[in-house]
Structures are given as structure tokens and as C-alpha cells.
Write a protein that binds this DNA or RNA. Structure first.
Lengths: 227, 227
DNA sequence: GCCGGCTTGTGAACGCATGCACGAGCGGAA
DNA sequence: TTCCGCTCGTGCATGCGTTCACAAGCCGGC
């Protein structure tokens, strides 16, 4: 039952699609025009059946006995992820992290140009981060409206994070990437994803500790690690 | 069957423990000495039964009809996560991200002091990032050995990431937090966790796109978001 | 000392994700 | 044209994680 632009893709699959996309792009850059699920699985460090099942949610784009045409598959994955156009983002907080994010080329190159960065501190407003000027948090509404921004990034301290989120929501942002170690309270119409750098370290140190001391040991896994 | 310092905690639970720990610490700071699974669940934005099951892996530390003593529970979670001592980390790559991580106070305050930051670029070696000096990548072995470092952070470009990982492994690091958008190839004795900022944005834009266009819509969820 | 209310700890059911195994179907060779 | 090898797409079984629901058990009041 080919479902062409199939609805309802499992979240676990959605989380892997960007990784496939990255690998496919590398593959194309290497001049390879066709790839099998086995090869792609190797590159991604996952099971081949999983790759095929993931891709089958997008539609029936593989050819039996041959594999997938890289360029076409890239097109389809990009379309599914909504990457047929850019998604400008606005960053709240021009501290250490905000500056790094604003200067990180990986965003622009992957389709997420920084439409603006704002801070509450008047001393920071007006300073330049690369080719972007830090603007006042009062201008958030303007930035969002004029730049058609729907994604906001919270890169403030934990204390200011909720306030930042409120301002983003008020400005009309509907998706938020939160780097502050707090749970944001937002309307149900807004999607939030949280990245807590310290949590990642805590998970690592848990397994690190486990490895040293106890009888039996085991290994961690989440988003990849080839042998 | 109380398993005191119970072995074999599910990975999903391990990933939530740091969040509970953070909330518990906040709760204690607010002068509250006792908390129920219901309250903790509200704070974490998860189901109460999940909280109880998660905590039950640590041992039987709750009191029926009463709840959990915050201070004691903090102690137990910290012990389980291996946070009864610091875990110094070494950062490879003094670019945008490396600088931000080195300057981010959240690491030190949560038990992960930065033992050193190294870069391959001679022009960067010797410069100061806050109170930390950028050192040569050749000194990685010294830093790891003298600082009892077991966790390394890869904050380089994608191209240099594998090389950075190899050097970290050679230096004796056994856990790596990878911010570069590549799959690292390491010995099976080394644990890797990967954080790809662009992937997080891609997941957001997928749901963002979904919301706008199609017949029915749905919502994302992963690490929290209260209504 | 006993009773009622409250909260934990956990057995059991459900649902999602993973991985296997195989039929379906394409391309190329003879 | 026919046959063979290869790879996709997917039904099915397994395992993990989440949630429900309830008995066990503690505390405070009477």
C-alpha cells in the first residue's frame, strides 16, 4: 500500500531521518548515485531493516534488486522534513551559548539561517556577532513577523528561560528549542524540544561509574556509535 | 524485592534521573523537605507512576502515605549517577562551540569541571577562555592523566571530529560527548553520546511543517513540556 | 488501640519500536 | 524469452517502556 506522501511517521523515525539525510548528502558528494539499505545502515550504525522501514514511511522510492537513487531520496527526505525552504530562527540570549549558536555555520548551511539574536541586557544590544547584530528583546515581535520566523531558540540562563519562552510565544513563534535546564511552560499549540548539555554528561558519567566498580558491565547506546 | 543499590537501570530511566535530580535540588532550595511522586511528576511533566517506578530502581526510599524525603532522595540519586565526586572533562576544539562550553558555568556547578581545552590551531593555543588556557592538542595525554579525566567533549568541525576522537581515545578517555555531525568510530570500550543541534531543529521543522499544511495534526513530545 | 486517608511499590496490560525472515519484483545475462 | 541473483517492502514475533490500578503500609486523629 504505497502511501505516497504518507502521514503519521513514528517519532523515532522522524528523529533518524535527519541523520539519513546527512549521510545521503555525503554519499552524493562522494559521487555515488545509488545506495542500498545495507550500506546506508552501515553508515548510520543501525539495522538495515530499520532503514528500509523508516524510508518506507515516506513512500516507495526504492527499487528491488538495486537500492535507492541517492539524489531522489535526498529530495524526498528533505521534502518530508519540510526542508524545501529555509526555516529562519531567532535566538534569545547572547551569552556564551547564544553567541556560539549565532556563529555556528552548521545552522545556516542546513537550512536554518539566524534571523536575529536578542538579549535583555542593554550593554549587549548593538554589539556584533559575526555579521549579526544583537538586538533588543523588545524587537522580537518585529524580527519574527518580518522574517517569517516560526522557530525560537532559548539560550538564556535557567532563571530567564521562562520569560524568554513567553516572549517568543507572544511574538508568534510556534516551535522552541530550549537549552536552559528548566521545563518550559507553553501553550499546547507550541512544540518544545529541550537539550540539556549537563544531562548528557550525567548519563555518560553514570555508565562511566558503572563500568569501573560493579560485577557485570554493559554499554550505552542512543544515537549512534559504530564499532 | 528491595534491591538496595539495584543494578541494571533501564536507559530511559537513567536519562530521566538527572532531570529529577535538578527538580529535587530546586525543591530543597525552596525549603521543602518532602515531596510526593505526584508533585515530582507534575514538575517533570511526566506520569506519577513513571516517577515511582524510576525511583524504585534505586531502592525503596519512599514512605507510603508520606512521600520521599527530598534531601535523602537527592543523596541517593546523586550516588546512583556517580555524582559523589566530580568528573573533570576535557574539550577538544576551541571554536565557537568549544569556547561556549568552556565558559558555560553549568558544567562546573553540576560536577563537570573543565580540566582543559585543546585545539590543533597553533594560533589559538595560549589564548585564554575565561580562566582556562587553550593548550595544544599534543598535551591531551598529560591533561587526561594528570587530571584523572575520563570524559572528552568533541567540539570540532565534522571533518576533524574523528581525529579528535582518536586522540581522546589514545589519551585514555573512555566516554565521549560528540557535538560534531558525524558518527564516531571508537573501540567498543568507549561510550559515545551524540548531540546534533541541527537535528533538533530538523525535528522541530518537521512538526512545524506538518502543522501548517495537512488534514489532521498532532504534537511532538520527547523530553518534557508541560501544558 | 483502632480507623481512615493518603501515597508508595509493583503486577499486569497495553502500545510502540526493533529485528527477523521471506515473498515480491527488478535488472541483467544467456 | 527465461532464469538467476539481488534488494526492497512488510507481516510477525519479540522486547522494552509506559500506564493503569490496586494491595501494602504508614501517619495522624480520636
Amino acid at each position: 500500500m504505497a502511501m505516497s506522501s504518507g502521514r503519521r511517521i513514528p517519532e523515532a523515525t522522524v528523529a533518524r531521518l535527519p541523520e539519513y539525510l546527512r549521510l545521503l548528502t555525503e554519499t552524493l558528494d562522494a559521487g555515488i548515485s545509488n545506495v542500498s539499505s545495507d550500506e546506508l545502515a552501515d553508515m548510520a550504525g543501525v539495522n538495515a531493516a530499520k532503514v528500509r522501514k523508516d524510508l518506507s514511511y515516506l513512500g516507495t522510492y526504492g527499487v528491488r534488486g538495486v537500492g535507492y537513487e541517492v539524489e531522489y531520496l535526498i529530495y524526498q527526505v528533505r521534502r518530508e522534513l519540510g526542508l524545501d525552504h529555509d526555516w529562519p530562527v531567532v535566538i534569545v540570549g547572547a551569552g556564551n551559548l547564544g553567541q556560539a549558536l549565532a556563529g555556528y555555520g552548521g545552522f545556516r548551511s542546513r537550512g536554518y539561517p539566524v534571523a536575529g539574536i536578542v538579549d535583555i541586557d542593554p550593554a549587549k544590544v548593538g554589539t556584533m556577532l559575526g555579521d549579526i547584530e544583537v538586538r533588543s528583546v523588545d524587537e522580537l515581535g518585529d524580527i519574527v513577523a518580518s522574517g517569517a520566523v516560526s522557530i525560537g531558540v532559548v539560550a538564556t540562563s535557567a532563571i530567564s528561560a521562562q520569560d524568554a519562552a513567553d516572549k517568543l510565544v507572544a511574538a508568534g513563534v510556534t516551535s522552541i528549542l530550549n537549552f536552559a535546564p528548566v521545563l518550559l511552560n507553553v501553550p499546547p499549540t507550541v512544540t518544545v524540544r529541550k537539550v540539556d548539555l549537563a544531562v548528557e554528561l550525567q548519563i555518560l558519567s553514570y555508565y562511566e561509574q558503572r563500568r569501573a566498580e560493579p560485577p557485570a558491565s554493559h554499554h550505552a547506546r542512543r544515537s549512534g556509535t559504530a564499532s
